[in-house]
Design a protein around this nucleic acid. Structure first.
Lengths: 189, 189
DNA sequence: GTCTATAATAGGATAGAC
DNA sequence: GTCTATCCTATTATAGAC
C-alpha cells in the first residue's frame, strides 16, 4: 500500500536475482512478484511489455554494472596486474565464490535468441577489457586476445562446474590462478 | 496409430534434443510431444512420472553415451595424444562445432537441484578420464587433475560463449588447441 | 501403445478501484 | 503506484476409448 517502496533500480536488482537463479523460462511472474514484494500489476506498471521487458531491464542493468565495475577498471590506468587482481576480486564477490550462477550464461542457454545480440556485445566488451590490460602488460595483441578469451571461458566453465555441484572450490581455484596465467610470458598461449 | 513407432532409446534421443535446446523449464510437454511425434498420453506411457521422469531418462542416456563414447576411450590403452584427439573429435561432433548447447550445463543452470548429484558424478568421471590420459602421458597426478579440470572448464565456457553468439569460432579454437596444451611440459599448470 | 477428450493448475497479462 | 479481481492461454497430468 505505501507509495513507491522501491526505486526502479532496487526492483531490477531483485528481479535479477531471480532470473539468475531460475533462468528465463524458470523465472515466473509469481517468483518475480514474490522477490520484489510487488503484485503482478505493479510489475506491469514498471515494465509494460511484461516479462521480456523485465529481463531486458535486468540485462541492461547488468551491462551497466559490468561496464562500470569490471570493464572500466580493467581498461583504466594503473599496473596491469593490479587491474587483473581487481577483476578477480570483483568476480569473486559477484558470483559469491561460485555459489551464484551467471546471468549471462542463463540467458545464453535459456533465453532463446532474444538476448543474443546484447550478450554478444557484453562478452566482447569483457574480452576487450581483459585484452587491454594484457596489452598494457606488454603482451602482443593476438596473444592478449587469445588469453582474454581463455580467461572468460575458464570463468564461465568454472561457474558451470560449480553449479553442477561437482566441485565447489573449482571456481575459487580458477580465479586465484588467473592473474599469473594471464601475465605469464610462456609460449603456451 | 501404428504400434511402437520408436524404440524407447529413439524417443529419449528426441527428448534430449529438446531439453538441450530449451532447458528444463523451457522444454514443455507440447515441445516434447512435437519432437517425438507422440501424444502427451503416449509420453506418459513411457514416462509415468511425467516431465521429471523424461529428463531423468535423458540424463541417464547421456551419461551412458558419454561413458561409452568419451570417458572409456580416454581411459583405454593407446597413445595418450591419440586418446585426447579422439575426445576432441567426439566433442566437436557432439556439440556440432559449438552450435548445440550442453545438456549438462542446461540442467546445471536450469534444473534446480534435481540433477545436481548426477551432474556432479558425470563431470567427475569426465575429469578422471582426462586425468587418466594425462597421467599415462607422464604427467604427475596433481598436474593431470588440474589440467583436466581446466580443459572441461574451457570446453564449457567456450560453449557458453558460442551460445551467446559472441564468437562462433571460439569453440573450435578451444578444441583445436586442447591436446597440445594438455600435454605441454611447461610450468604454467 | 496410441489416441481424443478433459480436467486442474500455473503462467502471462489486463481492467479498474483506490 | 499498488492492489484485487479477472481473463485467457499454456502447461501438466489423467481418464478412457480403440
Amino acid at each position: 500500500m505505501p507509495p513507491a517502496q522501491y526505486t526502479r533500480e532496487e526492483v531490477v536488482d531483485r528481479l535479477m536475482a531471480v532470473v539468475r537463479r531460475l533462468g528465463y523460462a524458470g523465472a515466473s511472474l509469481a517468483e518475480l512478484s514474490k522477490a520484489t514484494g510487488l503484485g503482478k500489476s505493479s510489475l506491469y506498471h514498471y515494465f509494460p511489455a511484461g516479462k521480456d521487458d523485465m529481463v531486458r531491464a535486468v540485462l541492461d542493468r547488468l551491462e551497466a554494472q559490468l561496464t562500470a565495475g569490471l570493464f572500466a577498471p580493467l581498461e583504466a590506468a594503473g599496473p596491469p596486474r593490479r587491474r587483473l587482481e581487481a577483476m578477480v576480486e570483483t568476480l569473486d564477490a559477484f558470483y559469491r565464490g561460485g555459489e551464484e550462477a551467471c546471468l549471462l550464461a542463463q540467458l545464453a542457454l535459456g533465453g532463446g535468441q532474444r538476448f543474443q545480440a546484447q550478450l554478444g556485445r557484453i562478452f566482447a566488451a569483457w574480452l576487450a577489457a581483459i585484452a587491454s590490460a594484457l596489452r598494457d602488460a606488454g603482451l602482443p595483441m593476438p596473444v592478449a586476445q587469445a588469453r582474454a578469451e581463455d580467461a572468460v571461458k575458464r570463468v564461465q566453465g568454472a561457474l558451470i562446474l560449480a553449479s553442477a555441484g561437482s566441485d565447489a572450490t573449482a571456481f575459487e581455484r580458477t580465479l586465484r590462478r588467473l592473474p599469473d596465467e594471464l601475465l605469464a610470458s610462456s609460449a603456451t598461449s
